[in-house]
Design a protein around this nucleic acid. Sequence first.
DNA 1: GCAAGTAATGTAAGCGCTTGCATTACACGT
DNA 2: ACGTGTAATGCAAGCGCTTACATTACTTGC
Lengths: 351, 351
Amino acid sequence: MEKQPDRAEKYRRSVPSPTLEDVATRAGVSTATVSRCLNNPSKVAKTTRERVLEAVRTLGYAPNFGAQALAAKRTNTFGAIIPTMENAIFARGLQAFQEELQRNGITLLVASSSYTPELEEQQIRGLVARGADALLLIGHARAPQVYEFLDDRQVPYVITWTYEDFQSRISIGFDNRKAMKCLAERVISLGHRNIALITSQRKDNDRASHRCEGIQDAMALHGIDPEGLRIVETPYTISNGADAFASLMESDPRPTAVLCGNDVLAAGALLQARKMNLDVPGDVSITGFDDIEIAQIVTPALTTVHVPHREMGKGAARLLLGMRNGQMPTSSTELEAHVVLRDSLGPAPRM
Amino acid sequence: MEKQPDRAEKYRRSVPSPTLEDVATRAGVSTATVSRCLNNPSKVAKTTRERVLEAVRTLGYAPNFGAQALAAKRTNTFGAIIPTMENAIFARGLQAFQEELQRNGITLLVASSSYTPELEEQQIRGLVARGADALLLIGHARAPQVYEFLDDRQVPYVITWTYEDFQSRISIGFDNRKAMKCLAERVISLGHRNIALITSQRKDNDRASHRCEGIQDAMALHGIDPEGLRIVETPYTISNGADAFASLMESDPRPTAVLCGNDVLAAGALLQARKMNLDVPGDVSITGFDDIEIAQIVTPALTTVHVPHREMGKGAARLLLGMRNGQMPTSSTELEAHVVLRDSLGPAPRM
DNA sequence: GCAAGTAATGTAAGCGCTTGCATTACACGT
DNA sequence: ACGTGTAATGCAAGCGCTTACATTACTTGC
């Protein structure tokens, strides 16, 4: 019996992955039928289908990704570009995103941009080049040519970690400004008038800048000059948070409340407060933002803003899945973020 | 002037990505030359090369990933399968891994297995199917058919987060057993005799089981019956750590030292201790493992084992890069993990 | 000035899959 | 028994790239 001798000849170095053709031969059908069996089972007769699937199983066939992408012009791969993998900020949302994708048979590609616009653009182009069918992006702030590129290529994307109604781009997230304003009002209502903010770079980061504006909104609303808000910008690590807090505590007048742009910076501030023998919240109040795990772990537990991590991730996946099938959502969706009162915020100390 | 009218006809829906052929036409050369220009510049005359690169630039050409993968049989993509993205345990190492890959022009695909062997196998096959040139794996414990599969397909892989000399498989990491033994000896030398362990599932997890054995090694060495080690297994979350600690504190005799398989569980234990008004380390000592960020943040700061996250990530990348180019490393590499003494471990209380 | 070697480029055959269209098989009504 | 409609299948043309091999253009030594 002769058996595709040419093919057998070609591969010698290792056990070759079986191809569609191998499956077809074994099942006694054409490659077209096998392909349909896998992608469009309803178009194949039941008995044939069973025969084919049997062959697939015994051969351990798995489609060649490149070939499939090339022929079908889709990869069943979505991409996500997040600012950092170093800390847990985006982890939970990403996990939810990926779970939802997996449930729909699509694979996730993750890239991190290290909060650098140039790198982010490069990553976006890279992911599109490697066939990402859709993209998850964090925040709105990026160069217009990036959006042009995406629109030209008709790559669906959603923006998350923020919600802005007026944007034509679809987003799913919460209103950073409103959420921070809410927290700030709480702070102010406890008598704090000397307020400071430790934040990560606001340039190219709409989340950070909106949070800052939220505080100023609250101040204005309560008759405090928003210009009086002392702001320290520093990259996103615990020790930077600590340093920023230290410098703030040396200023005069000393703030009675130090709001932080995120929990990581707040944790650093808390650490430093302890080192300086300052009682929190007795001597100074500290708040965070994001409500990641560490917020509950630090002492005192951090008053912060809880963010709908998993809802954003899952929701973004749903949106993207829909968009890939041609259902363009008509509007962005706003999720709720809410203040979580724990122990690090208290009344302003009497002078 | 006629210009490939057929091609223009084919695409209408959106701006098509320029193809190799477009570049070739524009530069007045064949596609082969363009391809060589991009992948093997030395084989092309300087003047031609410049002309081609110019065309690439103005057209904004980027290679089609699928086509490239199909034709070249490599994707310049490495995969990593980690047990979880939910907490920071693997984040730092992964970040280092990806930075090193990026520096070498290769893209990282990340999948998480949720500590489930079946899911992990599926993810591995998935990543290979989509053309991963090499794989980063955590720990040795997995079904033999997985290794067979990888070997058959000649997919290079390295195991990390563990080091075992006797294994034929290449690994880069540290000796979990030795590291934990070292910590346990410290604990014992402080007078603790009643020791307990809170660990994640040890089945299918060699890191967890080796750490456990390390404690027992130390006990045996100091004349304590290793069977006396009380062990609670529980999944990997803060609240589980807290619950496990609570149940341990109810047992009789109460342990004076609770070692935890990782910092997350330890953080939970610490939290619970505070809730129960137990002084740490006055009433009970608690230790962690991994030295992730939270270890420094909790109160008291956690005595734990520092793990060479970034070295493992970067080293794994290097190894894999080499293997792809045919340099099979001859042996695994052992990195150092060391005990970090902070505040959560103290002398055993006098009975 | 010519053969011979080398460097630069072109030609074209796939890589493994999807899918529009053509073909075949089959059930049914008449 | 025959045409007709529909369901099932096969055929074959690409998808955009890489690369072995063929071809052409130059050098260079004699």
